[in-house]
Design a protein around this nucleic acid. Sequence first.
DNA 1: CCTTGACTTCAAGCTTACTTGAACTTGTAC
DNA 2: GTACAAGTTCAAGTAAGCTTGAAGTCAAGG
Lengths: 159, 159
Amino acid sequence: MSELLTISETARRSGVASSALRYYEERGLISAAEREGSGHHRRYPRPVLRRIAFIVFAQKVGLSLDEIAVELAKLPPHGAPKRKDWSRLSATWRGRIDEQIAELERLKEGLTECIGCGCLSLDRCKLANPGDRAAHFGSGPRYWLGDPRPSQPGSVTKG
Amino acid sequence: MSELLTISETARRSGVASSALRYYEERGLISAAEREGSGHHRRYPRPVLRRIAFIVFAQKVGLSLDEIAVELAKLPPHGAPKRKDWSRLSATWRGRIDEQIAELERLKEGLTECIGCGCLSLDRCKLANPGDRAAHFGSGPRYWLGDPRPSQPGSVTKG
DNA sequence: CCTTGACTTCAAGCTTACTTGAACTTGTAC
DNA sequence: GTACAAGTTCAAGTAAGCTTGAAGTCAAGG
């Protein structure tokens, strides 16, 4: 029974605010133990700390809470990721990190080229060119980070 | 006079939506020519295209529109960045990109170590440890991306 | 009994960077 | 001179990931 943590204790130990923990619970990422014998206060079993660590990691890697929820759903409800899970996931995550790095490298390379040509021209520059941009990065000021445009409703045709 | 572009023309050539262009103008990032002889329609001078390219680049590098506004303010109001400006800026930007890459590398290294120890423990793991996190990345679910906490108002002390 | 403090829920707010919609004006082709 | 596309302004909506505030509950201390 002393293995159950209050929300503030959990917050303190994880570095994640209580409000965020409630939010995670609401989203189904973590869950409290049965709330018996403690009023209607939450009591978290210890392994929740690993789950929270998992969430924090995954966010750094660039996963959304929705994606994280999917991953967490593969684990037993109250379980924290075991070594096996961790190993499988971290492979995926490293892939993602590598992609992010690659994209930044491309960007840097583009900068170098543009120094060379001194252009910053929308017509000629590989980096600024809309078509090229779409190909490499998705358009700039875009519909929510990389969403595929939800089928143009009006007469807005793209040249 | 034929050097003035309509908003839709500008949008088409830059790949940035008209609504975004109006928004940029509202934020003071770009500005239209005097609206004489064309009703109250906007007419953009050609160099605006370079300004827009600049904005798009800067966003990719991770600058906010506020930061971009600061940079653009250093240029003549209607001027587009010249080669000199571009060269100065791209040095800064490459620095930023390198920082981002370095952070990702740190993250990756952390993943590898955590595979080694199999821990994912908030207490022991370098990656998950709140203190270490604060040092390297800022806290996880944080106050708007890396803000310094605005002086804890209540009794929320951090362990 | 009353206060204090930790906790609860629920709704609303905040930030960034736009997008969308409503209601209206202009420019141009017919 | 009238239809229609293109442009205008302004307000409100959207997305994610929380934070904040209001109003109430519960347990312990004095």
